[in-house]
């Protein structure tokens, strides 16, 4: 392994790592939003929306991200909708992640006994106050391990972004290997950068989980 090569490649990987993080963060943020809306539709059993979100969740979870990206990248222009690669990447990640986030939120909400809601309502809290002060804090604490796992999963999934010509970490590594055959250096940097992104999230996630593990359960 050549130190000189590593040094030369470093800025290229750093730049693509930034793209991975930026698009990943944006996609995950949107996925959380989609997840909250879908799980709310299911928790409150909103007519039509509940069925729509169920269909969406099955569609999204049972197709690969690569296929979803191809659909967005090659399919949409055929329908006259022009999209650039970055928008495709973010939209694809939000589409895939939304269903996983929805399921994580739903499992948390369902784990909080309905009589907790009744207890809050019987005190004279409004529905919104009861959700905000009583149900969501408990649901979030239960969902947190699944949410953190989803964030890590989705960031790793960004490695297929290169298929729609986004210059993410994977793209850079493949590109450099193709150009200079410095396979060992490229793959080493690829692994190092993924770890640099994901390890802090993993550690931070465990800390947040522990912080939110509210004095146990027991009502």
């Amino acid at each position: 392994m050549s130190i000189a090569v590593l040094r030369d490649y470093l800025p290229l990987f750093a730049r693509s790592a930034l793209l991975t993080v930026r698009l990943g963060a944006l996609g995950i943020l949107l996925a959380v939003l989609v997840g909250v809306l879908c799980s709310a539709a299911q928790y409150f059993r909103l007519p039509v929306l509940q069925q729509l979100s169920a269909v969406y969740i099955e569609l999204s979870r049972n197709t690969p991200l690569l296929v979803q990206l191809f659909f967005l990248y090659y399919g949409l222009p055929k329908l006259g909708i022009r999209t650039d690669p970055a928008v495709c990447g973010v939209a694809g990640l939000a589409f895939l992640g939304g269903s996983y986030m929805a399921e994580a939120f739903r499992s948390g909400l369902e784990a909080v006994d309905r009589v907790q809601l009744e207890s809050a309502l019987s005190l004279g809290l409004t529905n919104a106050q009861a959700m905000g002060s009583v149900i969501l804090p408990q649901a979030l604490s239960i969902s947190m391990p699944a949410l953190v796992a989803n964030v890590i999963f989705l960031l790793k999934e960004t490695s297929v972004f290169s298929a729609v010509s986004l210059m993410d970490l994977m793209f850079t590594a493949k590109d450099l290997i193709g150009l200079h055959y410095n396979t060992v250096e490229s793959l080493t940097l690829l692994v190092v950068f993924y770890l640099l992104i994901l390890l802090p999230i993993s550690i931070l996630g465990s800390l947040v989980e522990r912080r939110l593990r509210y004095a146990g359960s027991g009502t």
Binding site: V115, Q116, S119, A120, G124, V134, Q138, S141, G218, T219
Partner: peptide
């Protein structure tokens, strides 16, 4: 409902809040 207090068989305290916060939330 604020004028009608209700106490449940299964207590239904809020597990993520202290005793004082349980009482002062509403």
């Amino acid at each position: 409902r604020q004028k009608v207090g209700m106490v449940f068989q299964s207590y239904e305290l809020f597990p993520h809040l202290t005793v004082l916060d349980n009482v002062t939330l509403a």
